[in-house]
Write a protein that binds this DNA or RNA. Structure first.
Lengths: 214, 214
DNA sequence: TAGATTGTTAATCGATTAACAATC
DNA sequence: TAGATTGTTAATCGATTAACAATC
């Protein structure tokens, strides 16, 4: 009897899945139909056992010794595992250069993220549209979040406003925050915060550049 | 005899350092002068032993039982550990919304990153300035990288051009690439690639939102 | 003094890697 | 068949957490 109902997936694995997906899509567009774990591992710099275990988590299809696994099946399985077909609604607060970039980016729809609108209080951008998405004044935030069942709030305001925006989002009933401001946000325990901290990323890059790690 | 000369620092630790730094700066600006590991742990959601070990790596100053550690000393030590005072030069390739956002962001100078210029082949933005940084045509890339000893190339072009831009950067003598395109780049072993993959980040956020992890 | 906090050593936990039998 | 590849179990490695004596 198999008791393993809910698969345990680590954050590191979750991070790798979109990388596999993008790599496999690239291969597929080159006309390749099947691929082996060792070759994926080689290309992406992962360990081959790691690749096998990762793929086993998302896909029930089996590979064949010698030839490998079917690329299309893997792509479909990765997409469904990552729920790229279920759409989650989001709003962006802060439509400066970064907010604009996020509003304008068309790729999110491939990842199941539907950004509905932007919010900002700067007179000169209220009412503008980017990628078909309108910028509203902050006063409309709560209403829109409630009315359209928005679950994710994206924070793209300057550091000093990040906390108050977070508070506003929480009050408005958001469930998760994707935070692009490099500051720690204080929120209730039931609210999820995902930090996109470029300072952290840069710290790793700098260190690697000095040859201390990797 | 102490033999531990080079401190081993993991990527996770490196990711946490800027978070401590920003938190401590915030506390300092509130007028707080010393702080305990448990209180930092509580605020940031880390384990307190982890905090102590992390801080021990960057700082030789000692804390005092009961009162804790000196905030200013920790801030200085974190900054010097992260080399926020040594400046590394970088260029950005691709001045769309995202490239513009990165060019315009003034925070990087606090992290020891000096973005010198942007490169793009779109006629309408060549010659423009953002945050005092000029956008040059791609034809000037190699020359500028060599002349100004640029070590980091930031890729902010659409996915399909990312690989060719990476190749150009490598040919031009860059040593590290900060890659904002959600595609895997193929580069020689001696070139460092740091992926800033929003798809990966989003995958984690979505899963947490579904309540499966964390 | 008592208690909060320190720094460190030991135990636990989890993730990565190695080893191996099975198979196309 | 031989060899590449499979999936899985066992071993290793590293990071996190718990336990503890020292001290302001």
């Amino acid at each position: 009897m198999k008791t393993k109902i809910v698969q345990n997936v680590s954050k590191n694995q979750l991070r790798r899945f979109p990388v596999y997906l993008s790599y496999l899509k690239g291969k597929k567009s080159e006309g390749v139909n099947s691929i082996s774990a060792p070759s994926i591992a080689e290309a992406l710099g992962y360990n081959e056992v790691q690749v096998r275990k990762d793929l086993a988590i998302v896909s029930k299809t089996e590979g064949k010794p010698k030839s490998g696994r079917d690329i299309q099946a893997l792509i479909s399985d990765l997409e469904s595992f990552l729920s790229y077909n279920d759409v989650t609604n989001a709003v962006i607060v802060g439509v400066g250069h970064l907010g604009m970039a996020l509003l304008s980016y068309k790729g999110f729809s491939n990842y199941g993220l539907n950004i509905l609108a932007g919010f900002d209080d700067a007179e000169d951008i209220i009412g503008k549209e980017y990628n078909g998405k309108t910028v509203f004044p902050m006063s409309k935030l709560t209403n829109l979040i409630n009315r359209l069942q928005v679950h994710i709030g994206i924070i793209a305001v300057p550091d000093k406003y990040a906390q108050e925006v977070a508070d506003r989002l929480v009050e408005s009933g958001i469930r998760a925050i994707w935070n692009f401001a490099p500051v720690h946000l204080n929120v209730p325990d039931n609210i999820i915060v995902q930090d996109e901290n470029m300072a952290s990323s840069l710290a790793i890059l700098s260190r690697r550049l000095k040859g201390v790690i990797d």
